[in-house]
Design a protein around this nucleic acid. Structure first.
Lengths: 236, 236
DNA sequence: AGGCCGTATTCATCGGATTAATTGGAGCCT
DNA sequence: AGGCTCCAATTAATCCGATGAATACGGCCT
């Protein structure tokens, strides 16, 4: 096995074993390289790889530190995976969202604090305002869509679940989805689905939240495949 | 932004844009470094980071290639995240398994080919044989457990779902779980749960498969927290 | 005591040299 | 002619040493 890979695994194992703890500082490059029996360049490549996966963090002029190792931190960057896949593959990521988001939304219903609930409302108001304009600022809508779902997921009580949900649809994926909503009323319908989820959260009703979240993801899936079979899920 | 990060993002973007396609070979280090305006060492650190996340693959004496970029490939290595977390955090990963494995098992019921179904049976036979021995070879049981769940998940029809499931419990996590099953009969009960899932698959019954899979993950969760409230789920 | 500045520490980047592995083809044997 | 062996070119892997840039910390001044 290559020297760099060995160093990567060694550092990983040191973390798993508890020799290196979150926030702890590593020895300086020169010493650590010597201790591991490799050149500084080799060590640097290993550290760079671990930095890319958010296990380590380097601060120029200061040192190299172990990150918090929180799931949310380590799982981010995964969204790149979703960004790569089009067509049928994209459907697999939406399938994941359909499994996870209803659960997360239901879990968030009794937990999400009032201020964040209010913030959700403001995001919706803003999105509806943007949707009425012409031309539509898709990029801004994508950002609001992302904030809406992320805010809900972040209150599900399970950071792993929240992180995976967030990464199942990155910036590029969401942009593709919103750009793909060309049929008339598609944007309004999506926003109505958002509002339905919001109302369920406002009522602290987990089961309604779950169902409306499921309907929303399903709506997105069907709007992409052109299979939508009835007229929307916004009302009561 | 650092030069290395810039190079990483540039290469990523070239892949998203389609300039670099799966399997394609990159220019040699010297040329690519010159083209991107950085030193070879800097380029190497970027390539190493992308190699660590399975986006690129280098072959000494040959060149650097873009991988298949399949979700299964890109999402692996995520299991390291699960390996890091003990106690309450581990429960969050089990929660994920409880959401995902029942669905995957249900989806696999009508899809899994006969030969793999037979293989599942053999894995179970082998595990039951091992469980009766004394002392118990935990490591071998962990391997069989891993193969059992991985084989099922791989036939759910959604490679993303399969990959996430697989990474929600890596080697270290599974080892911890099986080592933690100290109460008498715990191992036999777990294997009985496996067999119940197997029987549902054998019957090509998605809903039974879903339920028994859910019961199994729940059993694992409760055996870890000592909350198990009744006597097992192996029978019919 | 509080803010400013200089110096030491540490990572970031660079350029070059050497080593090792793979590939592809030339040349040889059958 | 077909297949095998060995050699040479290509390319990544590793190492070395030097310079640049950002940060932290301690001493100094006010």
């Amino acid at each position: 096995m290559g020297a760099v890979e060995t160093v990567i695994d060694t550092i990983k194992q040191m973390i798993i074993d508890g020799q290196l703890r979150p926030g702890q500082r590593l020895p300086i490059e020169k010493d650590l390289a010597e201790q591991l029996g490799v050149a500084r360049n080799t060590l640097r490549e290993a550290v760079r790889a671990l930095t890319a996966m958010r296990v380590l963090q380097t601060r120029q002029g200061d040192g190299t530190y172990v990150t918090s190792l929180s799931p949310g931190l380590l799982l981010d960057g995964m969204s790149f995976v979703a960004d790569l896949h089009h067509g049928e593959e994209a459907g697999h990521f939406l399938h994941m969202r359909r499994l996870l988001e209803p659960e997360a939304t239901a879990l968030a219903a009794p937990r999400i604090p009032e201020p964040d609930l209010a913030r959700l409302g403001h995001l919706l108001d803003e999105a509806e305002r943007l949707a009425d304009k012409d031309p539509v600022d898709h990029e801004a809508l994508v950002a609001l869509d992302h904030d809406f779902h992320t805010l809900i997921a972040s209150h599900c009580g399970n950071p792993v679940l929240a992180a995976v949900i967030q990464n199942m649809s990155g910036r590029t994926v969401r942009a593709r989805i919103w750009r793909g909503m060309t049929e008339p009323g598609a944007i309004q319908r999506t926003l109505a689905e958002h509002r339905a989820v919001y109302r369920a959260l406002l009522g602290r009703d987990p089961e309604r939240a779950r169902l409306y979240a499921a309907m929303h993801v399903l709506g997105v899936e069907e709007s992409l495949t052109g299979m939508r079979s009835f007229g929307g899920a916004g009302g009561e």
